[in-house]
Simulated assay, not measured.
Amino acid sequence: MIDDDVELAELMHDVLKSYSIELHAVHSPSAGFAALEEKTYDLVLLDVMLPEVNGLQMCSKIRYSSSAYKDVPIIILTARTELTDMVVGLETGADDYVKKPFEPRELVARINTILRRTKPAEKSSASSGAPSENAESGAVKSGLSCEITLEGDTLQIETQRARILVNGVKLETTSMEFELMAALAQRPGEILNRDDLLGEVHGTAVIYTRSIDALIYRLRTKIKEAGASVDFIRTVRGRGYSLVGHVNQLSGV
Score class of each variant (00 low, 15 high):
Leu11His: 10
Thr221Ala: 13
Asp71Glu: 14
Leu197Trp: 06
Lys170Phe: 02
Gly245Ser: 14
Thr84Glu: 10
Val6His: 07
Lys170Gln: 15
Val253Pro: 07
Thr40Leu: 03
Arg237Gly: 08
Ala228Pro: 07
Leu155Arg: 03
Thr84Asn: 06
Val26Glu: 00
Val166Tyr: 12
Gln156Asn: 11
Gly93Ser: 02
Ile233Val: 15
Ile191Ala: 12
Thr113Arg: 05
Gly138Cys: 00
Ala162Cys: 15
Gln186Glu: 15
Ser66Ala: 13
Val98Ser: 03
Ser128His: 08
Gly189Phe: 11
Leu8Arg: 02
Lys39Gln: 13
Leu197Lys: 01
Leu43Tyr: 04
Ser125Phe: 06
Ile233Thr: 07
Asn248Asp: 15
Met12Asn: 07
Gly93Trp: 06
Ala121Gly: 13
Ile216Gln: 02
Glu151Tyr: 00
Pro104His: 10
Ser125Asn: 06
Lys119Asn: 08
Ala79Asn: 00
Gly252Ile: 13
Glu37Ile: 02
Val87Lys: 04
Met176Arg: 04
Glu147Thr: 12
Thr84Pro: 00
Pro104Tyr: 13
Val230Asp: 07
Gly252His: 11
Leu45His: 00
Ile148Thr: 09
Leu180Trp: 05
Tyr41Asp: 04
Thr84Met: 09
Tyr208Phe: 12
Gly240Arg: 03
Val44Lys: 01
Ser229Phe: 00
Val108Gln: 02
Gly152Glu: 08
Val140Arg: 03
Val26Ala: 06
Ile212Lys: 01
Ser30Trp: 00
Met86Ser: 00
Leu43Glu: 04
Ile233Gly: 07
Asp96Met: 08
Gln186Phe: 06
Ala205Trp: 01
Glu10Met: 12
Ser132Pro: 10
Ala185Cys: 13
Glu38Arg: 12
Asp4Tyr: 05
Thr173Gly: 11
Gly32Leu: 09
Met181Phe: 09
Ala162Trp: 02
Ile164Trp: 03
Asn248Thr: 14
Asn112Ser: 09
Glu52Tyr: 01
Thr173Glu: 10
Asp95Lys: 00
Asp14Leu: 15
Gly129Glu: 10
Ala79His: 00
Lys222Tyr: 10
Thr209Lys: 05
Ala214Cys: 11
Val244Met: 09
Gly152Ala: 12
Gly168Leu: 13
Pro101Met: 05
Asp5Ile: 02
Ala79Val: 03
Gly240Ala: 12
Asp5Gly: 03
Ile223Pro: 09
Ser128Ala: 14
Thr40Ala: 11
Gly152Cys: 12
Val247Tyr: 06
